[in-house]
Nucleic acid binder design. Structure first.
Lengths: 157, 157
DNA sequence: GTGCCTACTTCCTATGAGAGAGTAGCGGGT
DNA sequence: ACCCGCTACTCTCTCATAGGAAGTAGGCAC
């Protein structure tokens, strides 16, 4: 396993993207505290990130029979309405960090009042597929979890 | 879409597990604040949950060429060592909630000192596959994200 | 007795999530 | 002229919680 001091200039120019990602999997280990991938994992393991990506992904590959699974850009206010209960602060904060990490693009249109669109990048799309699966799992297995909780709480201490 | 007041006794006895899950996906919507699936999503969208499941899943389906992808039970102390940087409090807390939700089982062996094993349930395994994908994504795309961050930070405000 | 082991539990403090109000800049109503 | 309202934030305050550190039970070795 190659070991880097987590600096820059890590990839060889002749490697393919796939090769580089395979190499990255060996270089990075999210089980380690100081590995950057631990921080990245912490960032994406977040309910708002999951919901934002799911929303920008157009409700995912299923969405019943009519779902196209196509990504579609959303305005700030649309996201705010879709993600019920999110504070403006958290929404802005989360979107900024997703933008910084290259998962979404932020497009300002100078109408009046100004409108801002957020859209998944290709990188964001690749994660969105996973995140949609997570959201879907939560919805699909809710009953099972609820039943387990009842059983657990009912059993003698 | 059937609407429930999020009470108990939700499933019809004659439905198959698959049918029930499909129905659950319609009943529950993690985009809504008060939906229990929102809480469940928040619970599983957590770095420690991801790492615990990944660890109990035996490093996932890849793990290079030798990985079996087989789940294997781990002791508390083994988990504590594997998840570098986790506090005992968080580990215990997270394991308890996973146990309550029926994702892991807790087995106490009355040796001296006592040993406790944690193992994935079938339900936990189904989520572990997703979570492993998330951890894997973080490690595989770390370089891309790092590059995006550099670019973002370098560009004029 | 003293120390050590595992698997916790308790206490304290710093971080950060969320609620609520404030801001810029312009258009539209009266 | 004046006030309102709209979008997309930004600021401030408060309360919850994550994490660090230290304490606990109970038994075996020395």
């Amino acid at each position: 396993m190659r070991k880097f001091p987590y600096g820059k200039a890590r990839s060889m120019p002749s490697e393919s993207a796939k090769q580089r990602r395979a190499q990255a999997k060996l270089d990075y280990d999210a089980f380690l505290t100081n590995c950057p991938s631990r921080q990245l994992l912490a960032r994406i393991s977040d309910k708002w990130v999951t919901l934002i990506l799911a929303a920008l992904g157009g409700d995912g590959p299923s969405a019943g029979a009519g779902g196209t699974g196509e990504a579609r850009p959303l305005r700030y206010s649309e996201l705010s309405r879709r993600l019920a209960g999110v504070s403006q602060k958290m929404l802005t904060q989360t979107l900024r960090s997703l933008e910084r990490d290259g998962l979404v693009t932020r497009t300002v249109t100078p109408t009046v009042p100004v409108t801002v669109h957020y859209e998944l990048t290709e990188l964001g799309s690749s994660l969105q597929e996973l995140m949609w699966g997570v959201k879907d799992w939560a919805e699909a297995h809710m009953d099972e979890v609820l039943a387990n909780r009842d059983e657990y709480d009912a059993r003698p201490a």
